[in-house]
Design a protein around this nucleic acid. Structure first.
Lengths: 311, 311
DNA sequence: TTGAAAGCGCTAACAC
DNA sequence: GTGTTAGCGCTTTCAA
């Protein structure tokens, strides 16, 4: 058809506000949409279990609409990651849901995806790349700023904050570093808060036994920039240290327990279930409904205290 | 067909995990679903504007699926309410979205709806009735408890809280009364918090001019159990009274402004857009997808401070 | 490049 | 009560 006529048709379509009938279209199209879910194994990591719960909810909701998911879940090491990446690339998918757990390997994976021209949705943490993709997750820096604010609310005069970094990853791009940066920036930008002092400790490999009573000697509050707040709470509880306010991240069962007990004051939730659900929904909208979707969807930063914790 | 055969067919359906093809089904059914939106006029009340924004988003999302909305919006008085109620009942709708603004009139409306056997979704506040319906909204009592907690966090030793009731409704079932009940209950259940004293003032008709400087003489914090926190913030700002923490409800533009300025400390958000969206989605799921939906969906209680306010 | 026709899986109307 | 069939609006295929 000549371009001229295409334009004419489009004009008429627009004029009459014609909308394709989704039912007829998809019935005739008669296609299944198969998405790859390429994530860490969730049976070992509670955070990812929540993401997958959201994904499964979406799977159920969209199953009738021809959406099928195939899971490729790796152990939390780069070798397993690369293995599964190969698997994903071998098959032909209509869309890919993925999180950049290992930086270099992820870049590599994305570049290979680009060649196959498959829509990609990235969850949990973003990555700098020219490869076109949708991001659904938190704004880590801002969540650190929020943590700073929350600490500042419960203040007494002289106040010392301990930042406890408990981590096994050594990635320089890690989310928790952005959170800490945001945390400090809050106090820098509010210089009426100069009665705050900070101390940092770093503990490798989730080893609670590396915490010592000395660390908490002059401390009024603790900031744990990842999901391990329960380790600190547990330590303080065991050693009968009271009156220290803990702020942490993520609604893990253990964190929730200490929140209920009052040992943890605040948790910032990044809504992993919603992330997972939204990610699949985003692929569904792009492919099944052929709708335009936003490139970046930041999750709202949810403040959870004992009183608004959902069971 | 004999019951025996029905059972057989159902057994086979189950065995083969047969799922009706939604596309084919709705294409053949070839029906439009028309829902009535029966709410207060949103051009005068910002809270309802947000609800309607969510409704419109759902309208757009589901338009392709045969969903059509018809709006019946009333002025905030019972005469207008009754008028529009009559309108709604005259037409034939596949579903009704509604909020019980006026108690007696709402009961009446619900009873008449029941005769027509139309699915009803109620938003914002619930009502005790035997008429089958879905409720989507907040847990007002719990939100009051949460407000209590938040006040307790920012405490100094001797602390006096002023509860400012600014309202035009006199309904005994009003949401704000449940919030106040929840608020007090928080302090009753935490009797280590007995250094809190409370004072109440009631102001009719959103009249800011009825606030006086005396009211705030010995006050460290203010609880406004509805969306009028901005009136108090404005008064304090004009009179140069500083150091009083305000906690209120709802992300109205004015409230947000004072939150940004630091004049309001906390806002509890009941997510009106999400309520509106969810309400339409619920009708859609019941009718178009013929799915089972939950009878009650409480919105999460969202704590908003300056640092996690979304623009 | 264009036109005609089959058929996607289901519902509703109709005939038996 | 049961079986048959047209047709919903679109995509794809095949023929011209």
């Amino acid at each position: 058809m000549a371009q001229e006529n295409i334009d004419k048709v489009n004009a008429i379509i627009k004029e009459h506000d014609y909308k394709r009938n989704v039912f007829a279209s998809n019935l005739a199209f008669n296609k299944r949409f198969v998405f790859a879910v390429f994530l860490p194994k969730y049976d070992t990591i509670e955070y990812w279990r929540a993401q997958v719960q959201g994904i499964e909810k979406a799977e159920e909701e969209y199953r009738n609409f021809g959406v099928i998911l195939e899971y490729h879940l790796y152990d939390f090491d780069s070798i397993s990651f690369k293995e599964k990446a190969k698997e994903v690339l071998k098959s032909t998918y209509d869309g890919i849901l993925f999180t950049p757990t290992f930086h270099k390997e992820s870049i590599d994976f994305l570049n290979k995806c680009e060649l196959k021209n498959v829509p990609i949705v990235m969850v949990d943490s973003n990555i700098e790349t020219k490869v076109q993709h949708t991001y659904i997750g938190q704004d880590a820096f801002k969540s650190g700023v929020l943590a700073g604010k929350l600490i500042s609310l419960v203040v007494k005069e002289e106040h010392q904050v301990l930042i406890v970094k408990i981590t096994r990853e050594i990635e320089a791009t890690s989310v928790y570093l952005q959170r800490i940066a945001g945390f400090y920036s809050f106090f820098e930008n509010n210089n009426n808060l100069n009665h705050f002092k900070f101390k940092e400790v770093t503990i490798k490999d989730s080893g609670e036994e590396l915490l010592t009573i000395d660390m908490f000697a002059t401390i009024q509050s603790v900031f744990v920039p990842n999901s391990r707040a329960y380790l600190v709470a547990n330590f303080l509880e065991k050693n009968n240290i009271i009156g220290i306010r803990i702020i942490g991240y993520d609604l893990l069962d253990l964190n929730k327990e200490y929140l209920k007990k009052g040992m943890i004051e605040f948790l910032i939730n990044q809504k992993p279930e919603i992330q997972g659900f939204t990610a699949i929904a985003s692929l569904y909208k792009q492919l099944v409904l052929q709708e335009f979707v936003l490139e970046t969807q930041y999750m709202p930063l949810e403040i959870i205290v004992k009183e608004n914790l959902q069971m």
